[in-house]
Simulated assay, not measured.
Amino acid sequence: MMKIIRYRTRPEAAEENQRLVEKVFAELRAERPEGLRYATFRLADGVSFVHLVAYEGDGDPLGASAAFAAFQQGIGDRVAAPPEAGEVTLVGSYRLFG
């Protein structure tokens, strides 16, 4: 399964959003869940974020992450519009996902 999630934060919430995302990656580095590949990008406008997530198997390993739960908890207050999420199919990659 591979997904892409895109959203724009409110300008005053962009730094907090990045801080919460960084906590997710710190937890993932410590716990090293198997089968998960995940990347987050902050776009040049400073308020737009794109998350790419890929995982093997049936369960989403991010669902077990306390830091990810904390990130999701206040997302509605940080974004300018609801996040857009969808499944994607990888056509090609060079070292991005292993």
Rank of each mutant, 00 (worst) to 15 (best):
M1H: 14
K3N: 05
I4S: 10
I4K: 06
I5L: 12
I5D: 07
I5W: 07
Y7D: 08
R8G: 00
R8I: 02
R10T: 07
P11T: 08
P11W: 14
P11Q: 11
E12F: 14
A14C: 09
E15C: 03
E15L: 07
E16K: 08
E16I: 01
E16S: 08
L20Q: 11
L20G: 04
L20I: 00
E22D: 14
E22M: 02
F25Y: 09
A26I: 00
L28G: 03
L28R: 12
A30I: 00
A30S: 09
E31C: 14
R32F: 05
P33W: 02
E34S: 13
E34V: 09
G35T: 03
G35R: 11
R37I: 04
Y38C: 03
T40D: 06
T40Y: 05
A44W: 00
A44C: 00
G46C: 07
G46D: 09
V47E: 10
S48L: 01
S48V: 01
S48P: 00
H51C: 10
L52G: 08
L52P: 05
V53P: 00
V53S: 06
A54E: 13
E56V: 10
G57N: 02
G57R: 01
D58P: 06
D58V: 15
D58A: 12
G59V: 09
P61E: 01
P61A: 02
L62S: 01
G63H: 01
A64V: 00
A66Q: 04
A69L: 07
F71A: 03
F71Y: 15
Q73V: 03
Q73A: 15
G74Q: 07
G74C: 09
G76Q: 04
D77M: 14
D77S: 15
R78E: 09
V79F: 11
A81S: 07
A81G: 01
P83N: 13
E84S: 14
E84D: 10
G86P: 09
G86H: 09
G86M: 14
E87D: 12
E87W: 11
L90F: 01
L90M: 05
L90P: 00
G92N: 08
R95G: 13
L96T: 11
F97T: 12
G98C: 09
